[in-house]
Design a protein around this nucleic acid. Structure first.
Lengths: 186, 186
DNA sequence: CAGTTTGTTCAATTAATTTTGAACAAACTT
DNA sequence: AAGTTTGTTCAAAATTAATTGAACAAACTG
């Protein structure tokens, strides 16, 4: 496709009632639109940008792997957003690149096993924060033992409590991973 | 304290290296500054505003209950922020109001049991999202059964998978609550 | 009751985050 | 090698979220 042809296609893009881009060439099925919206809401809860939800949602509800420029066209987002969103999702292990014979473009598949998604999110987003919290806590202990104020005992008590919270937080992440690893019926 | 006296106090407020307000009258101990910073980072991870972390952190590391205007003075935040932050924390059950005899102002205590905090956060922030997700999913099922496209089977498969995710998410919240309810040693 | 204290609300401001798009580089094609 | 495709980067623009502060109401006080 020449860049002129691409501009022509762009001009036919319109925005539907829910804010998703649609056009003759890139039309999404109603189910797809709905699933993408669901993921946009879900990633908001996790504190991730909308575009990440759109991209993952589109891949999740697409029967075949998609290259970057198709994602851009179907969602009506910028190439930059798509590139960054895909990198993020790839780092988390939420999408997998795959090669399509006879096509130079890198295609992407959604990883749909909840266990893998959770493991990626825990390892990529949660654990780093927990670890930086651990560092802060060490610093805090130093400061607390050095404190000689009237309230030193109270302060040290609180710092101990924070240590307990952190330990339980770490245990929780393990429990969550283990639970999601099981293939539960019922 | 007259409003003139308050302005005078305000003028002596300065900003330290870490951005926390300090002054002769409202100086925070180094441990306190550190704990507040720790909470600011923690609430960021949870997707809550900085001011909420500051307020909770201050109450957590204060030996006595504090009224709104003292929180405002010690943190150097606006009365509006403090009022909204306290309402949020109170709704979550993370702080408790209490009466101090001979003082008309409402004072606040931090709730420091991890179980209670988690229960409040799960009930106040997570469950509502899970429930709105449930509604979306119902709508999605409707659309999926009505789909007659080439990919109808694939779509229905995915919708079933989302239903499984949601069910497991609900179970997870219960497991987390149960775990944090236990008083675990080691 | 007139004045003060206490706390809430909300429109405007400020700050933080996300998205865009154009410039660029690398890999391929003819 | 010149041109095309594919994808990345990053400064600027747009969007979204948080904070401020002034206006307000309610509850008290003398």
């Amino acid at each position: 496709m020449t860049s002129a042809a691409r501009s022509a296609a762009r001009e036919r893009v319109s925005i539907d009632a829910d804010g998703l881009a649609v056009s003759k060439e890139t039309q999404l099925a109603p189910v797809q639109v709905e699933v993408i919206e669901l993921f946009v809401h879900a990633v908001r809860v996790l504190g991730l940008p909308k575009s990440v939800g759109e991209i993952y949602g589109l891949l999740f509800i697409s029967p075949e792997e998609l290259p970057l420029d198709v994602i851009v066209a179907r969602l009506g987002i910028s190439k930059g957003s798509a590139s960054q969103g895909l990198r993020f999702l790839r780092n988390l292990g939420a999408v997998k690149p795959c090669n399509i014979p006879g096509d130079r473009r890198e295609h992407f598949n959604a990883v749909t096993e909840l266990k893998k998604l959770a493991a990626g999110f825990i390892g990529g987003e949660l654990t780093p924060h927990l670890e930086s919290g651990t560092l802060r806590l060490e610093k805090l202990k130093q400061i607390a033992v050095a404190d000689t104020s009237e309230h030193a005992d109270f302060f040290r008590d609180r710092v101990v409590r924070l240590g307990n919270w952190r330990r339980r937080g770490g245990m929780l992440l393990k429990i969550v991973s283990r639970f999601l690893g099981r293939t539960t019926k019922k």
